[in-house]
């Protein structure tokens, strides 16, 4: 099918884009990489009357280190993040996630900010940013505010973004020493959206005991699902395979996945157990290597 008609504007600065957004509000949509929005427009699931193209706004595309945080501009393309040395070094979980997102052609266009703002429950970056305690800077013509990742995702395709707001950048704390990470997912084909997935971030102290543990699932519920204290009980203990197994079982018992055309709830629960265990295990292995 073909998209419905719309008015097209292509501002060259962030301020111009925000003014346009303030003017048109609900009627308008910003377009970043278009890799999720255009399919929706092609099928007329989205019919914005004004399309504000962000692709000419150079100031929104960057990856830089600022104090102890990585700052990623909203319009930074997936492919840039995938190949960036700062990301590989300071946010290896993001580096690992990138090649699991869609296909190379889609990563050449799709953006970091677009993926987060779109809030597809199966998008890797939703769980990854929550697991890393990222923060997002939202800006409107009236001002700006920072929202932590774990308060940003409201539901399927629903976020904290107001109709006049744009996501302009993400701030990600630099991985501390002795930290391990892993992303595990299961999809039908290499580039498909995952039927379920889990992102883990762990750390070990000098004695080999767990000093931090985080496990966040995606494609299990409408929003990234943090295993929270089910996993935090690992802290202060040696992360043996048996202990990891029991922790992951407790975490899975609290999940309430849903059925859809991609997978049944029962299968998702099974995947959550397996992928959660693998993610934690691999994260601890990496933390142990880091510690040596």
């Amino acid at each position: 099918m073909k998209p419905a008609s719309f008015e097209y504007v292509a501002p060259t600065t962030l301020d111009q884009a925000l003014e346009r957004l303030a003017e048109h509000g609900f009627e308008a949509k910003v377009i970043a990489g278009g890799q999720s929005l255009i399919p929706m427009m092609n099928f007329r699931l989205a019919q914005p009357s004004v399309l504000i193209d962000l692709n000419k706004i150079a100031e929104l595309s960057y990856i830089r280190l600022k104090d102890d945080e990585l700052r990623i501009g909203a319009m930074t393309r997936h492919v840039q993040v995938e190949r960036d040395a700062l990301i590989a070094r300071h946010a290896p979980l993001i580096h690992e996630a990138m090649t699991k997102i869609a296909t190379p052609q889609i990563r050449n266009r799709g953006t970091f900010g677009g993926s987060i703002a779109h809030a597809d429950p199966a998008a890797e970056l939703t769980a990854v940013t929550v697991a890393l305690d990222a923060r997002f800077r939202l800006q409107s013509a009236g001002g700006e505010r920072w929202v932590p990742a774990d308060e940003f995702f409201f539901g399927m395709f629903a976020t904290a973004l107001g109709p006049d707001e744009m996501l302009v950048e993400a701030a990600i704390p630099v991985a501390p020493e002795r930290t391990g990470y892993a992303l595990e997912e299961e999809a039908r084909r290499a580039h498909d959206f995952a039927m379920a997935g889990a992102a883990a971030v762990t750390a070990l102290d000098e004695g080999g005991k767990c000093s931090a543990a985080r496990l966040v699932y995606f494609s299990i519920g409408d929003v990234p699902t943090d295993a929270g204290d089910a996993v935090a009980v690992l802290i202060g203990k040696e992360p043996t395979p048996d202990l990891i197994q029991s922790v992951v079982d407790t975490a899975a018992d609290r999940l309430e996945p849903s059925d859809d055309i991609h997978a049944t709830a029962e299968f998702r629960l099974h995947l959550a157990r397996v992928l959660g265990r693998r993610a934690l295990q691999r994260a601890f292995e990496r933390a142990a290597v880091e510690a040596n």
Binding site: A10, G34, I38, P39, N42, I106, N108, R109
Partner: peptide, 25 residues
């Protein structure tokens, strides 16, 4: 919808889906 890849072209040297861009872009 970006899935099949039949429409792949190169934009400034990079492979992209031509069905997921507007001509004006």
């Amino acid at each position: 919808q970006g899935v099949c890849g039949a429409c792949t072209i190169q934009l400034d040297g990079a492979a992209v889906r031509s069905c997921l861009m507007f001509a004006v872009q």
